[in-house]
């Protein structure tokens, strides 16, 4: 029987063990928003009776910190989160305890103990710069391999790739505020884009900028990429996977 009375230290804890977890979010779990994900992990940690450090303050809760949010609908193969434990666990037992408490689609695949000194373990948000994506796009028309290569070259050759983002958020109290369309040049945020065709499917691999400035989402790239695409595609069947975050060497201890 797992110890069922673990977690809250009454005083601030100075000594604790910080772990980094690598998890995947796929299947039904990909429909969870980032907020849903946070709620789900917080509850899973409690169900698993992990000796997590709780935040101080009026409403103590497990102190977990996450990497950059994954948009709803996109599969994440290697996502990250950090948490603090009051007792050391082996990475393997940490994974298995948590996996027994996670709903389908979420799975912790690896865990590492992070360095003791806080300055040696910067937070995930400050570390992550880029993300790699793979998009699987069913083709209803046809395209030759060299045509795809040429198309990608032309696409990347542009100095500017402008996308239009409708500003959804209109404040309730200020209804007169115009819904301005925001233009964004996404070209600087595209580090690489490769494509290949297999049978009736096109696979695009891309590496995009992540962060508060110049962030580019894969669906934005697809929107621009497919705007003048010569072959017909089935947009409803597009599957996007975030295959990894980088720079990897700084993320994995």
């Amino acid at each position: 029987m797992v110890d069922f009375s673990p977690i809250l230290p009454q005083k601030p804890v100075n000594i604790f063990w910080r772990y980094r977890l690598q998890f995947s979010k796929m299947g039904l779990a990909r429909y969870l928003s980032h907020h849903d994900l946070i709620r789900t992990f917080t509850r899973a940690v409690r169900r698993a009776c992990l000796p997590v450090v709780l935040t101080q303050g009026f409403n103590p809760h497990p102190d977990l910190s996450y990497g950059p949010p994954l948009p709803v609908g996109i599969v994440g193969e290697k996502e990250y989160l950090d948490l603090n434990l009051t007792r050391a666990l082996t990475p393997a037992s940490l994974c298995s305890l948590l996996n027994d408490a996670l709903p389908e689609g979420l799975r912790v695949n690896k865990a590492w103990l992070l360095p003791k000194r806080p300055k040696d373990r910067p937070s995930l948000v400050t570390l992550v710069r880029r993300a790699a994506y793979q998009a699987k796009i069913p083709l209803t028309g046809e395209i030759k391999r060299e045509d795809l290569t040429n198309y990608i070259q032309t696409f990347l050759a542009a100095d500017e790739i402008i996308i239009h983002r409708p500003l959804k958020a209109v404040r309730k109290k200020n209804k007169k505020k115009e819904e301005k369309e925001k233009k964004q040049n996404i070209r600087p945020g595209i580090f690489s884009l490769k494509g290949q065709v297999k049978a009736k499917e096109m696979f695009l691999e891309m590496e995009l900028r992540l962060g508060s400035k110049g962030n580019v989402r894969p669906d934005q790239v697809l929107q621009a990429f497919l705007a003048n695409f010569p072959a017909q595609v089935d947009l409803e069947e597009v599957e996007i996977i975030r295959t990894g975050l980088s720079p990897l060497e700084s993320l994995i201890p």
């Binding site: 039904l28 429909y31 849903d36 789900t40 899973a44 709903p103 689609g105 409803e236």
Partner: peptide, 18 residues
């Protein structure tokens, strides 16, 4: 699943909860 990304809160329609 084909329509889920066209509607609000797709998680309402897929189950799979704990």
């Amino acid at each position: 699943e084909k329509v889920l990304l066209k509607v609000q809160k797709p998680a309402r329609y897929v189950g799979g909860e704990w």
